[in-house]
Simulated scan of single mutants.
Amino acid sequence: MEIRVGQVAVHYVEYGTGRPVLVLHGAGVDHREAEACFESGFDGIAGMRRIYPDLPGMGRTSAPETLRSADDVLDTLLGFADEVMGGTAYLLVGHSAGAYYAQAMAERRPAQVAGLALVCPLLPGLRDVPEHRVVAGSGELGDDVFRGYFVIQTPEMLERYERHVAPAAALVDEAALERIGERWALTPDHAPAFAGPTVVVAGRLDSTVGYAAATDLVGHYPHASLAVLDDAGHALPHEQPELLRALLTEWLARVERLS
């Protein structure tokens, strides 16, 4: 499916009916990775309309010259949410750069967001990012991107990478991402912290964004749960799906209690 937001044609897929759940993927991939990682987390939960867009410049979503900063991407995502949700309060899930945008969306439109889930979030002021370390496997499977992304390097993880991650590389608009990346920091709007049910999940071995900065979010969000998972890197949703599912289930229960 496709919706036009300004000059951007946003491609997305959706499943199910009921309360909307907007899931945002990270940089350099497309909706297929988020779909592969989070659909299992919502499996068996009735009344969830899961929506997976391709972010601008990735997958089948365009990134015209008018998009020149992260602020422009954020405006596009807010416009997309306005169009697709139809005024219904929605759940917001983000992985990596998708989590960076999800935080800003929740703080700018708190009345429209019923709950916030941040997985391996990209954050300003990253610190104490560990060196990449393989904890399972020979370290010789796959290509350089796989070996630098996953800390669990088994044939099963390689199959997930080759099916859900690698195909997106050919669709990335590198020039657009470079243009936007030159102004990747969102402009602070000094809004109050999102006060709804929140969960933050980080990988202890995440060599892309680390986990230390994510722990600070517990003090920022008044109703946040935090989990730092060992034997998980930036590919945590692939590497620890059962733990992620349990954390999302608990988060959804908190959202339901406040509905």
Rank of each mutant, 00 (worst) to 15 (best):
G59Y: 01
A89N: 11
A102E: 06
A97V: 15
T76L: 13
M105F: 09
M58T: 04
I45Y: 07
S40Q: 12
C37E: 04
T76C: 15
V129F: 06
G47H: 06
L123I: 10
L74A: 14
L67K: 01
P64E: 01
G86S: 10
A34E: 01
Q112L: 14
A104Y: 04
G94D: 08
M48H: 11
M85I: 14
A46L: 09
R127E: 14
V73R: 01
V23L: 14
V93K: 01
C37R: 02
A99V: 08
G125T: 09
V73H: 02
H132N: 09
E65K: 08
A114G: 12
G41E: 00
G98I: 03
T76R: 05
Y52A: 01
S40V: 12
A27Q: 13
Q103A: 13
R68P: 04
Y101R: 05
L116F: 08
H25R: 10
G94V: 04
A102N: 08
H25E: 05
A111L: 15
Y52C: 02
P56V: 01
A89D: 11
S40R: 12
D43E: 15
V23R: 02
G87D: 09
Y90W: 14
V119F: 11
D128Q: 10
A70Y: 03
L24V: 06
L77Y: 03
Q103F: 08
A114P: 04
E35D: 10
L118E: 07
D128T: 09
A106Q: 06
A70Q: 02
E35M: 15
A89I: 07
A89P: 12
Q103K: 10
S96F: 03
S40K: 10
R68D: 12
R108D: 15
Y90L: 14
A27I: 13
G94H: 04
C120P: 02
L78Y: 08
A89F: 07
V119N: 05
H132S: 09
L74H: 09
E83G: 11
D75P: 03
P20D: 13
L78E: 15
F80D: 01
R50Y: 02
R49D: 04
S96E: 07
L91A: 05
G41K: 00
G79M: 03
H132Q: 10
G79F: 01
L122G: 03
T61Y: 00
V84S: 00
S40H: 08
A97C: 12
T61V: 04
A46I: 07
M85G: 13
G26M: 08
L67D: 00
A106I: 11
P130N: 07
A81G: 10
P130S: 08
H25S: 10
I51H: 00
A27D: 09
D30Y: 07
A89S: 12
H25A: 10
S40G: 13
V93M: 07
